[in-house]
Each structure stands twice: as C-alpha cells, then as structure tokens.
Write a protein that binds this DNA or RNA. Structure first.
Lengths: 165, 165
DNA sequence: GATGAAATTACGCCTAA
DNA sequence: TTAGGCGTAATTTCATC
C-alpha cells in the first residue's frame, strides 16, 4: 500500500505534464514525450492502477462562490481518544465550510482549512461548530492572506546509487 | 475578480458531480441533471469562463513516489518586508518537497505543507532550506498523521432572502 | 500502430420568458 | 429580444487488438 512505484524518465515527464494540466490529451502527451498516444494511454493507465494517481479533482475559486474569506483553524480535541476524535473528524469533514483537514503532532491536534463568506461567518463557524463542542478544548484562528500551490510532486532526487552492483 | 457567480440548481449539481470526479463525462452529467450533453458542455464552459472553475488537477499519492512522510512547517520570516518575503515565497514554492504554501495572520507568517522521504530528510529540509536562511526567524515542525479532503465546495446556504422584493 | 467506439466540441435552430 | 436548451455533425480521444 505504501510501496513506491518504479518510474522511468518518460513516466516522470508525463506526471509533470499532467500535474501542470490534468486535462492534457494523450495526443499532446505523446508529442511531448516522443511516443505514440496509445503508449501514453498505457503509461497513464498503469500509473492509475498502481495507485499513484488517485484521481482528478476540480480546482475552484471559493471567492467566486461567495466564500471570500479563508482561514486555518488549529484545534485541540481533548481527551484525545478515538471515541471522541472519530466523530469530530466526520463532523468537520461534513461542514460545508471545510476544505481540508489534517491530524497533526504538536500542541494542536487538528488543522482545518475553511472557506467562509466573511469574518462574521467565520466567528459563527468557530463558536457554533467548534468551541461549543465539549471535546474541543481550544481553537486558534488564522486568516489566510494568500495561498499558493507549488511545483509538481516528483520522486526525491536520487543522489546516484553508485556504479557498483 | 472577486465577484460572485450566479448559479442555478443545475449548476450546483454539476459542480457537485465534477468535484466528486472531475472526469465525469458530459453524457453522464446530462443523465444526472436531466439535460442534454451539449447543454452540460455549455454550462461547464460558462463556469470555466467565469473563473469559478480554475482548472483540473491530478491527485497523487506522495507515498507512492517515495515521499512517505508529510509535515507542516510554521515559519516566521523577519523582518516581514516585501523585499524579503517575496524571494522567500518563490524559493519555497520551487522546493521539490513543497506541496502548498499559505501566508497567514498570527504569530507564524507562513505555513508550508511538505512531503519528504523520511524524518532524516525532513531534518535536512528544515535545517538546510529554512533555519539556515537569515530571514527565517523560527520554524515549528508538525508531522501529519493523516490528511482528509472534505465534501464539495458550494455556495453558502442562503437563509432565504424573504418574499418581499 | 491502426481501428472502431465513444466523447468532445461548435453551431444552428427552437422554445419560452 | 434574449437566454437557455436541443440535436447534429465534425473532430478528437479512448481502448482494444
């Protein structure tokens, strides 16, 4: 399940292109990597079957949906036991404001990325959905000024395994 | 640019379906919402032109790429001036370990989501790419136990605008 | 690679408000 | 008059051989 997938330079280039635009056609992939479209399809199908490609997702602009304020909530859930945290996780995931949820080490147990209509809506969310719960010991709210995605995710740079076999 | 887009119930259902699987065909969308495939194409094209749909992205499993440890880094950049933070942002975005970057309010200026091969790699990243920089005043590292995506992003529930015009 | 099947896309017409 | 929906046909993409 956590096994690494073997990838050659062509696979890496395909992954790079698809991370840049997941709708790149096999025809365009083929032109870029110098193979036939059908071969590119085979490659992508293999990457999909291997579990490396988990799926395709739509990237939306929350502001265009009327959710122009985004924030991160750092949440302590105490006591930190399964019978409390499992329902907490499911409740948070089901909130229409939630975008993403992390379970973390450190003083804060969870980090929740939320998108709301404004600061009043954020206050309501924090008070009514978090601090009002008795298992929520503390919430720290941080507004998001800006959010960037980063370059494509690729395997770590091999430092060169050396010539000996 | 930050204007909200007008959406009817059919648009919302299409957005919901596409967020569930961005590769849903127009034929399947059409069957689900009770319209013709060409009409669904028109709808999606409109959503795309409006800027609400920003793009399609590939969701990968970092562990399958050999990056089986993920962490969040809370970073203070001081002094917090454009001539220091702009290059910082670009450098962080270009790191092969970076997945996502936030500029925040609060005691920590930035939050960086990274994927590394292991804890040794994480230590190297923190020491060589962050704390070694003189503009980086502090880094706090939190391991990610688990990461969930949440339900589809939709407009806020209208509380009902009332019957009066 | 090639080929049939399927999906995508653009366009013109039609209906209803 | 205009916005939205439909159907069709040309093109492109998919999946199997």
């Amino acid at each position: 399940m956590t096994e690494s997938v073997r990838l050659d330079p062509v696979d890496l280039e395909i992954l790079r292109l698809l991370q840049n635009d997941a709708r790149t056609t096999y025809r365009d992939l083929a032109a870029a990597v110098g193979l036939a479209p059908s071969t590119c399809l085979d490659r992508v199908t293999r990457l999909r079957r291997s579990g490396l490609i988990l799926g395709h997702e739509l990237r939306l602009d929350p502001a265009k949906l009327g959710r122009s304020v985004e924030a991160l909530l750092l949440v302590q859930v105490r006591p930190h036991r399964r019978d409390l945290i499992d329902p907490f996780v499911e409740r948070v995931r089901a909130l229409p404001e939630s975008r993403s949820l992390f379970h973390l080490t450190g003083p804060d147990d969870y980090l929740v990325h939320v998108a709301v209509t404004g600061t009043a809506d954020l206050q309501r969310l924090v008070l009514d959905e978090f601090t009002s719960r008795k298992e929520v010991a503390r919430v720290e709210t941080r507004l998001i000024f800006q959010h960037w995605s980063c370059g494509p995710l690729l395997p770590p740079q091999e430092p060169g395994p050396g010539p000996a076999g």
